[in-house]
């Protein structure tokens, strides 16, 4: 059942379950939406994650007790929302970008074509955002593609790089150090500060599909 704990003197942590599942994820997405719609005065930040939501608040405006009572009152809804978006992200898997294909081929025993086909097959679920602005944690990677992170993380991975690390796959939203095996690159901006309406391409609860594009298509899209 929903647990509401003191998390420092300016935040609470809501825990929805010990373990993590797609059902819990749906409840958290629905809860976050209801919470935002309520516009509770005094809430400063909301960070939904795999099994928790962190909520920071201004204790001058709302007390811990008042906030807790309001939070525990919001119903938990298991029904999937109608508004789930499917977002296609074009990825160029050319070896110009996919620097770690060799390592991945050695580890998985698959061909490059098989890896691309397994990577582009699922509709991945965006469980949460974090790490860097706009970065999304995806569920649904085919276990045949599970691969350990690089023994020596790179000091800099470019924005848009697509990789696999452990049981996860995703896109680097800004240039940063990182240890994932890089297999491609998207020309699409995941975080775009110049896009004032929607600076972030993806939100929690979205579904993602990677679509293979050629190097030529990559270059054309990049210039648009």
């Amino acid at each position: 059942m929903l647990k509401c704990e003191v998390y420092g003197d300016s935040a609470v942590l809501l825990t929805f379950s010990e373990g993590f599942s797609e059902e819990i994820h749906t409840i958290i997405v629905n809860y976050t939406r209801s919470l935002k719609e309520k516009k509770i005065e005094g809430i400063v930040a909301i960070i939904p994650a795999f099994t928790t939501i962190t909520i920071s608040y201004d204790a001058h405006i709302i007390s811990f007790k008042e906030l807790k009572a309001l939070l525990l009152h919001i119903p938990l809804e298991e029904k999937k929302g109608q508004l789930t978006r499917l977002i296609e992200i074009p990825v160029c898997y050319d070896t110009e970008f996919g620097k770690d294909f060799e390592e991945l081929i050695l580890h998985t025993g698959l061909t490059k074509e098989e890896i691309i086909s397994l990577h582009t097959a699922p509709e991945y679920l965006v469980y949460m955002l974090g790490f860097t602005p706009g970065f999304f944690y995806l569920g649904g990677l085919d276990e045949k593609l599970f691969c350990p992170r690089k023994a020596n993380p790179r000091m800099r991975i470019e924005e848009g790089a697509v990789g696999i690390g452990g049981q996860q796959t995703g896109v680097y939203s800004v240039a940063s150090p990182g240890g994932w095996q890089i297999i491609g690159k998207t020309p699409v901006k995941i975080f775009d500060k110049t896009n004032l309406e929607t600076p972030f391409k993806v939100q929690q609860g979205d579904r993602i599909k990677f679509v293979e594009i050629s190097l030529e298509e990559y270059k054309n899209l990049k210039h648009d």
Partner: peptide, 29 residues
């Protein structure tokens, strides 16, 4: 542990046992 939202002032302890106090530019999770 699964990743979870953090706030400024959180003291977290990675595997080497040496605490890190997270500050204003810290990651959100």
């Amino acid at each position: 542990l699964l990743s979870s939202g953090i706030i400024t002032g959180t003291v977290q302890v990675p595997e080497n046992g040496q605490p890190i106090v997270l500050l204003t530019d810290a990651q959100t999770t």
